[in-house]
Nucleic acid binder design. Structure first.
Length: 499
RNA sequence: GGUCCUGUGGCCGAGUGGCUAGGCAGAGCUCUGCAAAAGCUUCUACAGCAGUUCGAAUCUGCUCGGGACCUCCA
């Protein structure tokens, strides 16, 4: 079997993944800022890295997955009136800042549950790590790479760049940064405009504030991730993930801070997912084109033709490689929803196959299926190509359905191959991709309902037996109105599908 | 303006120089009381121009689109 290779943004190439400590992986992923409700764009990194987390675990590695909650407000705009993002919203909604943070944290957790994302091992909050952040800032000052001005502390990027490769991660050249002509207010405190804040003095109206050696204030934009990653994963750890838009300045700054404090680039593999776009434009607050997750799940948004099940969204995201942009449209999402349904129904059929065939009746087909299964791991190991894994699995679907429909002989595949397929479908659909049967996921499939359904199916069968099609069609049609589709199979059985 | 990415059939998308990606939609057929589903067959591709090569969607150059970052941002 091939080894897992991942694209490392830091070196700009695919590299074989080797954990620092054999058997263990430390992974940090930038979590949400809980000053508002998560939207479709936010879903991507959390699903992408959830799949990576699951895959590493599946490989037998013990993963410590740290994903932070950013609950300390950052600037709306650099330098401008020092408005705290969270306190501003809190004022508008007449809420206590922490009440607001709690509200959106709960909503975020709810959305993660909907997507069937596993909980991270540790989910630290920025406000819970003020002490660690202050310590880190002190260290940077004592090393001579930060300076205090009017109660705020800034990182001296120019000085750092003289000794370290600032800009390496994001492909930025120091001279270009210096040339940026953009004039922003409040820059006068900085020695150079590419310097970034480690600590910001809080103006009187700012609600979120903490004591520090430099007066009352709040932490800067990037220090929380450095502090929390260091605390829980060490000075150097394996994987740091997040959206591509965080590469600069967020991750670049993290590298600078950690390099000064810990003498190390914090992570060995930097992984970045691409953006979700809508009509070709990145989904983001500043573009006014966001679809919130709650809107997506209810269909309550002008751009949405219908509600989309969280699992359909998950499938949609996995059908594209994580480093490609993914364009949202109703057609694309509906296609994903239908495709997933087809896949899942084939999986249900596959589960019923017996593994008792000693040998394959159709050696050629057997070999092809066996190869297809083997390739799935190769695809996954090639920088997590979930799109190719799904495509490979889709190639097996006609074979599975063919056996069910008896177009393909029941003994065409050997028991060993059947077992391999069953194992692979379970591994990928359930364990690695974290997909759930929509029925289970929406709670429709409880025991009582099953019993009622079975009763209706029996009555319909009896009606059909005496050619009372009026009754049988009534049952089928009315169930269909409820979103339950009965399908008469060739063997006289009935299968149930949820529209 | 700078840096980088990208342009695949009706839609979404994968593609390591030579072999049908895949999904959804469309057409035909089979099966079926009728449906639905499924199976089989099938139609639309690699932005344009030039080059490298025996051979290019894949490499190079140019042109024209689109996008991201450079500011909070997943």
């Amino acid at each position: 079997m091939t080894k897992l290779k991942v694209y490392n943004s830091y070196t700009r190439q695919k590299e074989e993944f080797e954990p620092m400590v054999p058997g263990y992986v430390g992974m940090y992923v930038c979590g949400p800022t809980v000053s508002g409700e998560s939207h479709l764009g936010h879903a991507r990194p959390f699903i992408t890295f959830d799949v990576l987390y699951r895959y590493l675990t599946h490989m037998g590695l013990k993963v410590r997955y740290v994903r932070n909650i950013t609950d300390a407000g950052h600037f709306e705009e650099e330098g401008r009136a020092a408005e705290d993002k969270i306190s501003k919203k809190a004022h508008i909604e007449m809420l206590e800042p922490m009440e607001l943070v709690q509200k959106y944290t709960n909503l975020f957790h709810w959305a993660m549950k909907q997507f069937n994302n596993l909980d991270p091992s540790i989910e630290p909050t920025a406000t819970g790590h003020i002490v660690e952040q202050i310590e880190m800032i002190r260290k940077i000052i004592s090393e001579g790479y930060a300076y205090e001005k009017n109660g705020s502390v800034y990182f001296d990027v120019k000085k750092y760049a003289e000794k370290y490769p600032y800009g390496k991660l994001s492909g930025r050249v120091m001279d270009d940064l210096l040339e940026t002509t953009r004039e922003l207010e409040g820059q006068d405190e900085k020695k150079n405009k590419q310097d970034f804040a480690l600590w910001k003095a809080a103006p009187p109206e700012h609600i979120m504030r903490w004591n520090s050696p430099w007066g009352e204030g709040f932490p800067g934009w990037h220090i929380e991730c450095s502090a929390m990653a260091t605390k829980y994963l060490g000075k150097e750890f394996d994987i740091h993930g997040g959206g591509m838009d965080l590469q600069f300045p967020h991750h670049e700054s993290e590298i600078a801070q950690s390099t000064i404090c810990n003498n190390h680039v914090p992570a060995r593999y930097w992984m970045h997912n691409n953006m979700i776009t809508i009509n070709g434009k990145k989904m983001g607050k500043s573009y006014n084109n966001v679809i919130k997750l709650s809107e997506l799940f209810t269909g309550n948004h002008p751009l949405l033709e219908q509600a989309y099940h969280p699992m359909a969204v998950r499938f949609f995201i996995l059908q594209t490689h994580y480093r490609s942009t993914l364009d949202f449209s109703n057609d694309a999402l509906q296609a994903a929803q239908k495709g997933m349904k087809r896949m899942w129904e084939a999986y249900d059929v596959l589960k019923t196959f017996s593994q008792s065939n000693a040998s394959a009746g159709d050696a050629e087909l057997d070999a092809r299926c066996s190869n297809l299964v083997d390739e799935l791991d190769e695809f996954m190991n090639d920088d997590m190509n979930t799109a190719k894994v799904l495509a490979g699995m889709f190639e097996l679907v006609p074979v599975i359905n063919g056996i069910r429909d008896k177009h393909i002989a029941a003994d065409a595949l050997s028991g060993a191959t059947i077992q391999k397929m069953q194992q692979a479908f379970k591994t990928y659909l359930e364990d690695v991709f974290g997909l759930l049967d929509e029925r289970t996921a929406s709670g429709i499939d409880n025991g009582k309902l099953d019993g009622v359904l079975q009763l209706l199916i029996d009555i319909r069968k009896e009606a059909k037996g005496r050619k009372d099609f009026a009754t049988s069609d009534k049952i089928r049609n009315q169930l269909l109105d409820l979103g339950i589709l009965l399908k008469d199979e060739k063997d006289g059985g009935v299968s149930i599908s949820f529209a």
